[in-house]
């Protein structure tokens, strides 16, 4: 986590808050990747490509979560 840039770290904080599973992995060239999983959908993004709007980015990756996340029971 501490290896990641601030946008990627913020994305992980938002992912955890929303309940999106995340894994830090590397590609064959050693580039940091974030594997994000929610409701049987997995998205893999390059950590250094995460923009400065990580929450909006997560909503783009997982359109259904915005509604599901706030149903609390």
């Amino acid at each position: 986590m501490s290896n990641l840039n601030s946008n990627a770290q913020r994305l992980i904080f938002h992912a955890i808050a929303l309940g999106i599973r995340y894994y830090e992995v590397r590609d064959e060239h050693g580039e940091e990747l974030l594997m994000l999983t929610y409701d049987n959908l997995t998205q893999v993004v390059y950590a250094n490509k995460v923009n400065d709007q990580p929450l909006e980015y997560l909503y783009e990756l997982f359109p259904d979560i915005k509604e599901a996340a706030w149903k609390h029971w």
């Binding site: 955890i16 808050a17 309940g19 979560i65 996340a69 706030w70």
Partner: peptide, 15 residues
């Protein structure tokens, strides 16, 4: 109450 800004406990893997 349980924090509203955390995702639903119906599925949450971490909290």
């Amino acid at each position: 109450p349980y924090p509203k800004n955390l995702g639903s406990r119906k599925y949450h893997p971490y909290l």
